[in-house]
């Protein structure tokens, strides 16, 4: 464990807490893509199959349980408790374009050809693109509530922090995880446009608005 990874994980944790706070304080899931949230739940469930047979650490175990539980809870909130506040007509990204290629890539690239390892690869590829329905929705509406942008910024920061973590691990542990690194770089790159607007507008106290 190094500080990049620790702060990355804490940023991931913070993003979920901000999302829950957004839903609670506005009593609405407006502006949040149900599809992206469903993809994240899929990512965590398929990645953490090892929860049942592989013990890494109490930290690792607790985080995994939290990510699975919170992502399912968010789906429950969106699907049932705040259902009327979700507008499916703007959440129109075709998730099969993400699920299909992720499955194909997982069959082609994995560390061992076993069910948990292929699912693990699938989750890595899927996580890389799971934010796309959310970003697509943002693009369509052209604006976002400030708290929603904080959620996305924390999520993007988590991904960005994993990159120095891999560089650090390469030099200190001689550890390289080519699947996670490749997918992670793609995933972080997807946030660049968002980060540009976040830094130049939201952090300057303006509303998040995309040029028409």
């Amino acid at each position: 464990m190094n500080l990049f990874r620790l702060f990355g994980d804490l940023s991931h944790l913070a993003s979920i807490i901000i999302l829950l706070q957004k839903i609670r304080s506005t009593r609405s899931c407006r502006g949040i893509s149900f599809k992206t949230q469903a993809l994240y739940a899929t990512v965590f469930i398929t990645r953490y199959l090892d929860l049942f047979y592989d013990w890494v650490s109490l930290y690792n175990f607790t985080m995994k349980v939290f990510f699975i539980a919170s992502s399912c809870y968010i789906l429950y909130l969106m699907r049932y408790k705040y259902r009327p506040t979700h507008d499916p007509s703007i959440d129109t990204f075709r998730v099969e374009y993400l699920l299909g290629p992720s499955a194909v890539l997982a069959l082609l690239f994995h560390y061992r050809f076993t069910v948990p390892e292929v699912f693990w690869s699938f989750s890595i590829f899927l996580e890389a693109v799971a934010i796309l329905p959310q970003l697509f929705m943002l693009q369509r509406t052209g604006e976002a509530e400030t708290i929603t942008t904080h959620y996305l910024a924390a999520l993007g920061a988590y991904r960005a922090l994993y990159i120095p973590n891999w560089i650090y691990r390469y030099f200190t542990e001689d550890m390289v995880d080519p699947i996670a690194v490749t997918a992670g770089i793609v995933q972080t790159a997807l946030y660049l446009d968002f980060f540009y607007v976040y830094f130049t507008k939201v952090l300057q106290g303006q509303k998040f608005e995309l040029p028409a």
Partner: peptide, 10 residues
């Protein structure tokens, strides 16, 4: 996993 990259990251 034996001989492969350990999945110790989240």
């Amino acid at each position: 996993g034996s001989g492969t990259v350990p999945h110790d990251e989240l």
